[in-house]
Amino acid sequence: MLYLSFIVILPLSMIVVNTLSMSWGEFFETITHPRAVASYKLSFGSALAAGLINVIFGTIIAWVLIRYDFPGKKIIDGLVDLPFALPTAVAGIALTTLYAPSGWIGKFFDFKISYTPLGIVIALTFIGLPFVVRTVQPVLQNLGREVEEASASLGANRFQTFVKVILPELYPAMITGFSLAFSRSLGEYGSVVFIAGNMPMKTEITPLIIMTKLEQYDYVGATAIAVVMLVGSFIILLFINLIQWRMNRKFNY
């Protein structure tokens, strides 16, 4: 318990202490600065987009890995964990180079991917993928075939069975996966700084604003922005939990 308070509680409480040392006016001015506001939109927006992409493709990948057999399946299953194991900075430079205008993938597109918000979404998609796959996979594995058999024997075609029987069982896991990926993406720094280009107002994420303020020794300003991020992600996670709670009630688990 002492260890926990020293490593986690005491440091985190410093955020509150430091914010209290600011006057309201000062605090408000720092957090509503146009550059900061632009970064909130970018950070929350791109984390949301990446989360949604991952929910769709993550569920497909989980489905393919559980239900089908194909050569190289074990390797693919292992590779899904890569974003957990690969340092974010390494992922950052690799993705930037790949999606840069002269890169292997970037050169096939007429528009820029690296150094734009699209690049940020790609980096966050990379980071978040395993969260969705690894939460949906066990649920799909444990899903009994009986319900599908029942659905089919009652005359539903495969698509109807999937949408009306299988998918509702997966929703809670998909939402959990989304919220894990989302909260990780929101704070992600390492992989994004390289691909973002970091132009103020355009591709500057909120963690980077905190970083810049720290480099200018503006500790109070950095803390104020950190508060906004913490409160923002807390509200969103609460909202997601609320949806999940309501869904659980609806399906009577």
């Binding site: 318990m1 926990l4 986690v8 509680i9 005491l10 440091p11 985190l12 410093m14 955020i15 202490v17 430091n18 909260s183 990780r184 929101l186 704070g187 992600e188 720094y189 390492g190 963690p207 980077l208 905190i210 970083m211 720290l214 020794y217 500790y219 950095a222 803390t223 950190a226 991020m229 913490l230 992600s233 807390f234 996670l237």
Partner: peptide, 28 residues
């Protein structure tokens, strides 16, 4: 206790660094 253990996952790494500056930095 369970919630507190999970807390570092919900905090941005940059904020994790920031809190130690606030504790042990020159003005901390």
């Amino acid at each position: 206790l369970v919630t507190l253990i999970d807390l570092p996952f919900a905090v941005s790494p940059v904020i994790a660094g920031l809190i130690f500056i606030l504790l042990f930095g020159a003005q901390g």
